[in-house]
Design a protein around this nucleic acid. Structure first.
Lengths: 275, 275
DNA sequence: TCTTGACTCTCAAGTCACTTGAGGGTGCAT
DNA sequence: ATGCACCCTCAAGTGACTTGAGAGTCAAGA
């Protein structure tokens, strides 16, 4: 019989952990002095402790280990448990590798600029939305703003509430400075009318814009002419981190202001991991 | 100005997390109603929240993020932080991959035997020890026991206390059934004499056995003739998990008993990860 | 026999980044 | 006036322990 300290030295398991396992019922001492409460361990408990350590090392929780050791499960259940753990670990390794890549990208950015990068790229989901939208080819990106002004006036006049920030969707495969295929998008409630005619005869139509499970996004503050670096940053990020673009870019106008330097815009690139 | 729920929808960050960030001082609402305590957030806080999310995604703790955002550190300090994180992540990826390999090995074992494996292999450190030892070539492994009996009697007679379990070290590179090069090892305190002569004239000498940072170990209960499967199991484990043997095998006699089926023995293979 | 120091006990609190729940107040539309 | 959805604070829970306080126990040396 060993006192807890001796057993701890023998097994290289901290005393506090042994007490914790006792509390959980995972490894009860062979004997407990009923007057002093001293725990006494026997060598016959070594195999059980060894199993506990081995299973813990595989990443199982103490609860799962208790089940495995005490609840005699069928071999099928045991296999299931480990296969689940295997899948979890594969997932986790992939996630950690991706994270490592992001850190390395970030580090390169910092070393290139010698300061914290100006744009932070965040991955998020894009929900689908019910919207009134107008798709047109306009001569230059500067015309997008004018188009928005026009459409917004019409929607306000028609007393249709806008329930989320306004956005543009750029349908060109690659960036184009001229003859831009843009869609002007206004999120509306289910009750909104199916269409709305503008002064120039073009039709605003109601549709659902699709959700994306993953988009690389960044936030830009300042004038719309200055969006370029934001696009560059996010493009580099996508490339460096092994993603590919799987949908049309969106610009979400979170804050519009008469003073353009106060404007806040989010750029969203729908993406997926390559492979 | 947005109420917390609206800001939560906008950013896809749970309300509870926003409140938590407020509590930490990481992201204070732009305004708080002094009567109702309602939090109001502004769009100008989006860039900061985005930075928080991006840095969190890189695996930094909220405390580190707060430092980065508020304590304006030198670019050198910032680089150091990320390089540290990078090293940590590399380490973690390696560890997870090794763990995954262990789970896969375990799973194969289970599928082969259709039950929990009989031997659990555990990695641990082997501390160095001061010992009295006798190295000899004996005809067969069966002679090891006899040698131990003899030596133990001599040490007891000399009134030298044995302060840890007795062990054998097998110095043969490969397993040998005959002409076994074995060392009989008795841990003793610093005060023990430097040598001790046996009845047959051989010398028990005092020395330090070296520590190993890592050893693959398993526990066997039962007769010493039955140790074979334990060696096999641990050998397969070492092979399957990408380790190599870097030192002499040890057998630690944790419990010796006149009834050999109650004996408990630990087999220890010093190892290192390949590469 | 007494003292000393190493050891043991229990119980509470801390770790991290939140989440969940209780109990109660607020704001807007019917 | 009454819902209803929202907001508040505060406490407790998560996992696998560790740390610390305060008190009792054990074995050896003086």
């Amino acid at each position: 019989m060993f006192k807890i300290g001796d057993f701890s030295r023998l097994t290289q398991v901290p005393v506090s952990a042994l007490r914790y396992y006792d509390e959980l019922g995972l490894l009860k001492p062979a004997q407990i002095d009923r007057f002093t409460g001293y725990r006494y361990y026997s060598l016959d408990q070594l195999p059980r402790l060894n199993r506990i350590l081995a299973l813990k090392d595989l990443g199982l929780s103490l609860e799962q280990i208790a089940q495995l050791l005490d609840d005699n499960l069928t071999p099928e259940q045991i296999r299931g448990m480990f296969r689940l753990k295997q899948a979890e670990l594969q997932q986790q390794v992939r996630a950690e590798q991706a994270r490592l890549l992001r850190v390395e990208t970030h580090l390169k950015q910092i070393e290139a600029e010698n300061q914290m990068p100006a744009y932070e790229v965040v991955l998020k989901a894009l929900p689908g939305q019910r919207v009134l939208a107008l798709r047109q080819v306009v001569p230059t990106t500067n015309h997008v703003g004018l188009l928005h002004n026009e459409v917004e006036r019409a929607i306000c006049d028609a007393r249709i509430p806008i329930i989320a920030p306004v956005l543009s969707i750029y349908h060109d495969e690659d960036f184009k400075a001229v003859d831009v295929d843009v869609e002007i998008v206004y999120p509306v409630a289910a009750e909104a009318p199916a269409a709305l005619e503008l002064a120039d005869g073009s039709q605003l139509v109601k549709r659902e814009i699709p959700p994306f499970a993953l988009a690389a996004t960044t936030i830009h503050r300042g004038a719309y002419q200055q969006l370029g670096p934001g696009y560059t940053a996010i493009g580099q990020w996508i490339e460096a981190n092994g993603y590919q673009i799987i949908g049309a870019v969106r610009e979400v106008y979170l804050k519009v202001s008469s003073n353009e330097t106060e404007a806040i815009t989010e750029i969203q690139f729908p993406v997926a991991k390559v492979e």
